[in-house]
Amino acid sequence: MFGGNSTVWFVAGMAIILVALAIGVFSGPALGGNGLALMGAGIAVFVSGIGSIIGTGITGEKAAAITSEDPEKFGRLLLLQALPGTQGIYGFLVGFLAIFRMGGFSGGLTLDLAQGWQFIFACLPVAISCLLSGIWQAKVSLAGMDIVVTHPEESGKALIMPAMVETYAVLGLLASVLLIMFAVQV
């Protein structure tokens, strides 16, 4: 449906975040701090996930098409497809840390509303940076696949360029991890 237009997915990801924030504003008291915090963890996981899903999806299509012509390129193409896959892992990682930090693995959650909001905002950097960078890193990977086709011996260069985009996912991850580990008051 939206396959051809990754911008739509970026907008969709941002819309999910906005809807979650709106739910927090209007139904915060009903959800309670625990609910808000868990929603934050969820945003980190699946909004980052959207970035990687779209990223690995569109790169995978092209990789498969090239592999059908030249199966020997499979290995190099797989690496290029895997690059936009890390964003989803970063998001999952932050989600896990958030659940860990709110006490999800050690008995019940007892968070108040303010703490719930803190978790939501701590999760936002990774969610937004991974959503965006996942999609746009994939575009660089797609172009890099052309390098693999025409100059297989230069595949290393094709790997480095997408890594430039990933920098900002890494920084988002770092910000979220630091916020959850140190800034959030539990």
């Binding site: 896990f96 890494v170 920084l171 770092l174 991890v177």
Partner: peptide, 16 residues
């Protein structure tokens, strides 16, 4: 700072 971030990433996934 990516050195820290990537180090954390591999460590925390391992923890998970």
């Amino acid at each position: 700072s990516r050195l820290l971030a990537l180090g954390l990433a591999s460590a925390i996934i391992g923890v998970v």
